[in-house]
Design a protein around this nucleic acid. Sequence first.
DNA 1: GTGAAAGCGCTAACAG
DNA 2: CTGTTAGCGCTTTCAC
Lengths: 334, 334
Amino acid sequence: MKEVAKLAGTSWTVVSYVVNDGPRPVAPETRKRVLEAMKTLGYRKNALAQALKTQQTSTLGIVLPDLARPFFSEMARAIEDAAYKRDLRVLVGSSHFDHARQAAYVDTYLQLQVEGILLVPIDHQVPEGLRHAFETGMPVTSVHRKIDLNIPAVVADDAAGGRLAAEHLLSKGHSRIACLSGPREDEGPIETRTRGFLDALAAEGAPQWIPPVRCSDRDLRQQAYEQASRLLTEHPDVTAICAVTDELALGVMRASFERGRRIGTDLSLISIDGTEQTQLTAPPLTVVQEDFAMLGELAVRLLLGQEPSAASTEENASHVVPMNLVPRRSVHQL
Amino acid sequence: MKEVAKLAGTSWTVVSYVVNDGPRPVAPETRKRVLEAMKTLGYRKNALAQALKTQQTSTLGIVLPDLARPFFSEMARAIEDAAYKRDLRVLVGSSHFDHARQAAYVDTYLQLQVEGILLVPIDHQVPEGLRHAFETGMPVTSVHRKIDLNIPAVVADDAAGGRLAAEHLLSKGHSRIACLSGPREDEGPIETRTRGFLDALAAEGAPQWIPPVRCSDRDLRQQAYEQASRLLTEHPDVTAICAVTDELALGVMRASFERGRRIGTDLSLISIDGTEQTQLTAPPLTVVQEDFAMLGELAVRLLLGQEPSAASTEENASHVVPMNLVPRRSVHQL
DNA sequence: GTGAAAGCGCTAACAG
DNA sequence: CTGTTAGCGCTTTCAC
């Protein structure tokens, strides 16, 4: 900067003024000289120094379980897009479902003076250090699952998701409907979806036919396949399956493929998530789709305090983004 | 820091010494007091200030086309993992195949004084500003495709990938083999794979049966499906298809599903990429797999100058990571 | 073993 | 309109 000032024959203050276009006016003449000097020197402001001075890093930190899983990577993209629009950069880290790593990322981000932390938590536990940071003013919002009554959250309407799936299957005349779900938890998206599904079934006077088939967390994708296989053999008369996540649904597709049951023709399948991969399956999957774009948008708005904090309906400041039924080819009329 | 110093009844210098565990020794007694003070005050070092002083941000910048596409998100994860191991944080941005946005990210990262930039380029063009940065000492490496003879790159052995696919199909007795490829380019991974495939076919005395079917970049996934459909109708006697990317392969699966041709039974399919989603298809896809972990690892090593710069075989400092055949269920013996 | 002081590159009073 | 100056929070010589 000094260099630029010298070359332009002025003081660095003025250079700062033109770089930031303020806060004081600069004579057009001077400005031109400065601009020129910047060009020839290839000057680029040091965002670090600027941040140190202004206390504004224009950077967000994201911690999520696994950057390579479609569900999370679509979330990450949505968040990144929302951030980009607002001229914010994002640091991203995968926790790999490891509490220590999750906490480590939170800590680093704190040290880096991010403007806020977006956490897609591993489970309900609040990472070491995050609570304190939040209470002392660091903006924090949890995404996809709530971890604390006070920490704002933006989650999908998982219960409605389950309900939509159930209603859709019912409306197509199914009654022997199975549900493929994840490990039983106390709370969390998986459980909420499952419950929403089951409740809707009951509400429509078609109570659960067989209990939800549970896949354990370890090696989930393999589990999905195995449990689905078991399901199909033990209950050959099942006519429709609701998979609580897309990955689970893919397991069902494989299992039914191997048993010669054609999805969308003699077995219906619906899943909840709606990641892009479900468009590309054979046949394309009917899904209840999470609105990732809105989720991301809302998450950064909430983080930046640009959202009316719709604590109206919820006990805390959490926002709920709607889920939508996207009919494709995997559900047939019975 | 001052606070901590005061509470510990010493000077901030000493606090710095204990925080960094150096460069001067500290009396165990004093150290304990400082540590205590840090705890009670919840002190966390300001990484910005530290970076400003030391000129070390411990941060890498990544720019890639689309964070949500499995191919890139697996790359991103691999890079993130490699970075995490070395205590480096990563900023990530999606260019969305937009040159301006790609350049914008490069520029921001430069301003943020990252220690290096990892670019997964949109095409062969070197983004505005990147070349200059590189030439003035900023570590830069391009990943997945080369953009410049001087800028180090780490790419997969795409030609070998194509060859492996061809050889595998041939070894299973196929001869009416089609190739589903992307838009024709001058160079780049897609083209290299295609060429490798074709060359191997010729080398094995089984020259191309029909020319590669090209999908244009616009709406690639839809194209894959449509072109595959066309291929199957126009050439019903095709017995094996090599899709040059996983996304293309998914299109083939859908098209063949609709035509009642069972993959792995009466139509063989192999694809190149090997993203995780190919394990979950029905049937699981036989693929030529890119070693993302090694790619990421190598990329950051190269970036940090920790790699012997194996310019031996290549004209520039690019590294080539091997590709591996992963036989699954989608290729049948003829 | 400890402390005072300079300075990383920038912003923003505050004078001129 | 422009220039001087004092820090932002930290590291690190250099004296004590």
